[in-house]
Write a protein that binds this DNA or RNA. Structure first.
Lengths: 118, 118
DNA sequence: CCAACGATTGAATATATGTTCATGTATGCA
DNA sequence: TGCATACATGAACATATATTCAATCGTTGG
């Protein structure tokens, strides 16, 4: 069984447009990574973490208090953000202090907020 | 049972930092909406749709061919994008032609791609 | 050294989500 | 009018994901 929709015949396609677009499309691999990046932003817990970090670096415990959540839950989410290279961290004694990797991340957040508050 | 982590005592918090951040935080409602927005970007099918639409407006059938997926699957995802006001559409006979709502969306995509291709 | 604390991790569970399949709606053409 | 096409939608299923709970690791202070 094929994933292509058999009910949609070739004739319906605006061939000129589609071919133009095909040529310009990024490789699927890049688009997949892009989706993974946005997915990391696509959770209210992680967004709140990132929003908080846009003002100041914070340790896990700070974040847990700030968001009124367990430090375990926070840590799990920070792991996701680390995986996407959205946050970085440094150790300070018993604490681990997190911050945004660069201003680029803050810009994305800002752009998104503008869209929401349009 | 409380969601707050009992193992993390008040003493560990960097009170000064946290209080500063609390004052600057956006309302949770806005951050929730922001997460929903990014969530809409956080799927490879939807990202490919948006990326394609950043080059040209396209009907459902065009998109289905372009992504080699059923028009049903595409339609479901377009519904999500419509819900977040990321795409708009106009009817043209039997076709429904989709496009990005504004340049703002394209900017977000571009910003994200830059981060991925860093 | 040991006890306490901050943080991380793995397993488990409940929930959310994407695609398929079947069906329904609307438009255009014979 | 009847039929095929383009699209939308609802239900179902399989998969992904967020939080909790329990256990562990690393660091610090007594």
């Amino acid at each position: 069984m094929n994933k292509v929709d058999d009910t949609c015949l070739v004739e319906c396609v605006h061939s000129d447009n589609v071919e133009q677009v095909v040529l310009k499309m990024e490789p699927d691999e890049n688009l997949f990574l892009l989706a993974e990046l946005f997915k990391a932003f696509g959770d209210s817990t992680r967004i709140r973490i990132l929003h908080a970090l846009s003002f100041s670096e914070l340790c896990v415990c700070d974040l847990a208090h700030l968001l009124n959540m367990s430090s375990s839950a926070i840590s799990h989410q920070l792991r996701v953000l680390r995986g996407q290279k959205i946050v970085k961290y440094r150790k300070d004694g018993k604490n681990v202090i997190y911050s945004l990797v660069d201003a680029h991340v803050a810009t994305l957040l800002e752009q998104g907020l503008q869209h929401v508050n349009e």
